[in-house]
């Protein structure tokens, strides 16, 4: 057999640890590590890929108003209570990671106070024992008071908190730094801004090993290939030795996929598209698996069935490769 041409890379993706166990000063049942790759996605023969990509279940502090019925049906009544919702994800769907979105803090969606949100974070941490991602509401001014309160409430749990953006990162970085968390650095599908933001954050003293990059993605049919090209360029630069772009990626596949008309539209509207009950799940699954191929380390998703499919996909890809690798050694 002809020998494979292998690329040797000098760099590696930073390893970020999310969640702290008792031994580490937290209360999580386990910690999740992401990153650490020494080659491009799934190129097992070429270099180490020490950690599997993980999927986080998106949980909201307030019932989501714009989720289509076939998505809300999967969670039923639990959507009304974030604690039950989170518990359901972990117990029924075996969630490894929860992404708590504090949408209710937004002035237009409930305007919850920092104290209310901090209390919720503490309760969720008590209710479930998986590592936690905490996401702001998207209103900079509000996030700047809510997220620091939540950081404090989750002190010691080594959460992943987001998002820092180029025009608003200082407050969040300071809070994350003080309370020992990790940060999500979000950039608008732009490798330069992604890198600039990482430099700005690390200039404030937060190590690069505590940054996860949200490169911003588009769903299938909505710019997915553009997101792919940016993620690939980041990876190539990182593997070539640039530490400032060597962050693991978090991709909001569920958020983007469920905004697509193709996920939401009913069969009555587009008879030739088939039943929406399957279509939305497929749209989210395909978006997510394409992102895995692009290098996503953490996928934040919504539909439990889509998540199950993606988890299986991850397992399949990693199992077969370890078999191959074993075969290589023999």
């Amino acid at each position: 057999m002809q020998e494979l041409m292998l690329e040797t890379w000098s760099g590696a993706i930073n390893t970020v640890t999310i969640g702290a166990t008792k031994e580490e000063g937290g209360t999580r049942s386990r910690a999740i590590k992401v990153g650490g790759q020494k080659t491009l996605p799934f190129l097992f023969p070429e270099g180490e890929l020490p950690h599997k990509s993980v999927v986080a279940f998106e949980v909201w502090d307030t019932p989501p108003a714009d989720w289509p019925k076939n998505l809300t049906d999967a969670y039923g009544d639990s959507l009304k209570d974030p604690l039950k919702w989170a518990e359901k994800c972990v117990k029924d769907f075996k969630a490894q990671l929860i992404a708590l979105r504090l949408q209710g803090a937004h002035p237009d969606f409930g305007n919850k106070t920092p104290e209310q949100e901090a209390k919720l974070v503490a309760e969720v941490l008590k209710k479930v024992d998986v590592p936690l991602i905490i996401l702001g509401c998207g209103d900079d001014a509000k996030d700047n008071i809510v997220l620091p309160a939540c950081c404090e409430a989750a002190k010691g749990e080594r959460c992943l908190i987001g998002s820092a953006v180029q025009d608003n990162y200082k407050t969040l970085v300071a809070a994350v730094l003080a309370d020992g968390h990790n940060i999500i650095a979000e950039s608008p599908i732009d490798i330069n801004i992604a890198k600039q933001l990482n430099i700005l954050i690390s200039d404030m003293g937060l190590p690069l090993e505590r940054i996860v990059v949200n490169p911003t993605i588009g769903a299938l049919g909505y710019g997915l290939e553009y997101a792919y090209s940016i993620m690939e360029r980041c990876r190539l630069a990182a593997l070539a030795g640039d530490k400032t772009v060597a962050s693991p990626f978090i991709c909001f596949a569920g958020h983007e996929a469920w905004r697509a008309k193709e996920s939401k539209a009913t069969q009555e509207e587009f008879p030739e598209w088939g039943p929406e009950s399957e279509r939305g799940i497929i749209w989210e699954t395909i978006t997510a698996t394409a992102l895995l191929q692009s290098g996503a380390d953490i996928l934040v998703m919504r539909h439990p069935e889509a998540i199950a499919k993606v988890n299986k996909y991850i397992d399949n890809l990693t199992i077969s490769s370890s078999v191959e690798r074993r075969a290589d050694r023999v």
Binding site: D190, N192, I193, K195, Q196, I199
Partner: peptide, 9 residues
Amino acid sequence: MAALFFPHT
């Protein structure tokens, strides 16, 4: 875009 940084990205 890369040059929109001090001194450079």
